[in-house]
Design a protein around this nucleic acid. Structure first.
Lengths: 194, 194
DNA sequence: ATTTCAGCGTGATGTAGATCACATTAAGAG
DNA sequence: CTCTTAATGTGATCTACATCACGCTGAAAT
C-alpha cells in the first residue's frame, strides 16, 4: 500500500480530530512539529541503549516494542499498527537511555515528534495537551487491562482474547512473536492453537 | 496520624508544585475544585457496578484497587498510599460502571475530584492539564514496567523487587494481599519468604 | 475467660506451561 | 534451481506454582 504525503497528513489530522476539532491553520501548526520517516522491515527505530528522541505515530505498517531480558529472551510490550502511538516512553520522557527496542515488522510510514516539539506544540496550542492527555489516559487504561489479563487468565484465554480483539494480528505476525506477546513459549502457543 | 485540613491542603499543593509552580491565587482555584473525605478501614470508595464519580488523591492512609474474577479470586492492581492518585480510571473517564473496587486498608484522608471538575479545572488553568498529563505519563510508564515484570520474572523475583521498591508495604499489608498483588497464591508467597 | 476467626506456615499432590530435542515445510538468498 | 535459514508442529521430560488439607497462634468479639 502506497500513500502520498498528503494522504498521510490527512490520516494524522483525522486521528487527532477524533478527539479535538482543528481549523486548517491549527492543523498546519500541529503538522509543522512533526517530521516524517519511512521504515523498512527489520529496521530499528529504537535500540536498547539509544537516546530516544521521538515518539512515533504509525500511519501504516507494523512495528513491535519489545524488551530483551538477561537470558536473551524477547518480551513484547505491544505491537503498533496504523493509528498507534509508540515509543519507549520511559526513556523518551525522562531523557534516559532506551531499555526497550522498537523495530519494524512490515514496511511502515511514521510521523516523528521530538519531546521538544511536543512541548512547544502543547505550549502554542493548549488543545493538543488535551489531546495527548486523552491518549495517555487510554494508554494507561489499556495497560491496566493487560496487567489484569496477565494476573487473571491462562495462556489459552489470553490467546482467545487476542483473536477476538485483534484478529488481523494473527495473520500478520508469526507465532513466535505472538507467543512472546502473550507471555508463553512458542511451543505452548503452538499446542494451544491446534 | 492526625492532620488539619490546612496541613492536607499543603500536601496537595506541594504534590502539584513538584511539577508546576502555582501562585496562591492559582492554588485557591485548584483547591476549590476538590472535595474532601475521610475513609475508615474496610470502607469502599468504589464497588463493582458503581458509577465512578471521582478520582482520589490520597493524603494519608492506604487503599487498594482490585478486581474480583469469576471465581471470586481477588487480584490487586495496586495499592495507593500517600501522594498517590487512584480510581477505576476506565470507568471514570468513560462514565461506565466500575469493574474494579477501591477500598480502604488503613484509615485515610483523600481529596476527591469529579470528572466535571477535572475538566473545568483544566479549562480555567491550562497548567493543570500539563500536570495531569505528566502524572498520566508516569502512571503509564509504571504500568508498562509492571507488565514487563509479570512477563519476565518469577514470583520470587517479583517479591524481592517489591521488598526493595516499597519496603514499607511489607509491614503494612498482610501476606494474602501481597500475594494477590504479586500474582501468586498465598501459600507460595509464604514459602518464598521463609 | 472462653470462643471465634483471620493470618500464617507447611505437607502432599496436581497441573499448566517451560525446556529440550527433533522432524517437516516454507521461504529467501546466492 | 539449489542451499540455507526461518517458521511451525509435536513428543518427552521437568519445574514452578496452584490447590487441598490441616494445625498453630494471636487478636478481637461475646
Amino acid at each position: 500500500m502506497l500513500f502520498t504525503i498528503s494522504e498521510m497528513q490527512t490520516k494524522l489530522r483525522q486521528h487527532i480530530e477524533k478527539i479535538i476539532p482543528l481549523t486548517d491553520e491549527e492543523f498546519a501548526v500541529v503538522f509543522s512539529h512533526f517530521s516524517f520517516r519511512k521504515v523498512k522491515k527489520h529496521q530499528f527505530l529504537i535500540q536498547e541503549g539509544d537516546s530516544v528522541n521521538h515518539s512515533y505515530f504509525v500511519v501504516s505498517g507494523l512495528l513491535k516494542l519489545s524488551y530483551t531480558d538477561a537470558n536473551d529472551k524477547e518480551h513484547i510490550l505491544h505491537f503498533a499498527m496504523e493509528d498507534w502511538w509508540v515509543s519507549d516512553y520511559k526513556a523518551y520522557f525522562t531523557k534516559a537511555k532506551a531499555t526497550m527496542s522498537l523495530d519494524c515488522l512490515e514496511d511502515a510510514n511514521v510521523f516523528c515528534l521530538s519531546l521538544d516539539d511536543h512541548n512547544k506544540l502543547c505550549g502554542s496550542l493548549p488543545k493538543m495537551e488535551h489531546f495527548f492527555l486523552t491518549k495517555s489516559h487510554y494508554g494507561y487504561i489499556a495497560s491496566q487491562q493487560r496487567i489484569l489479563s496477565l494476573l487473571t487468565t491462562s495462556a489459552k484465554e489470553r490467546y482467545e482474547q487476542l483473536l477476538i480483539q485483534y484478529p488481523s494480528l494473527i495473520q500478520r505476525v508469526n507465532k513466535t512473536l505472538l507467543a512472546s506477546y502473550l507471555g508463553v513459549s512458542r511451543e505452548t502457543l503452538s499446542r494451544l492453537s491446534s
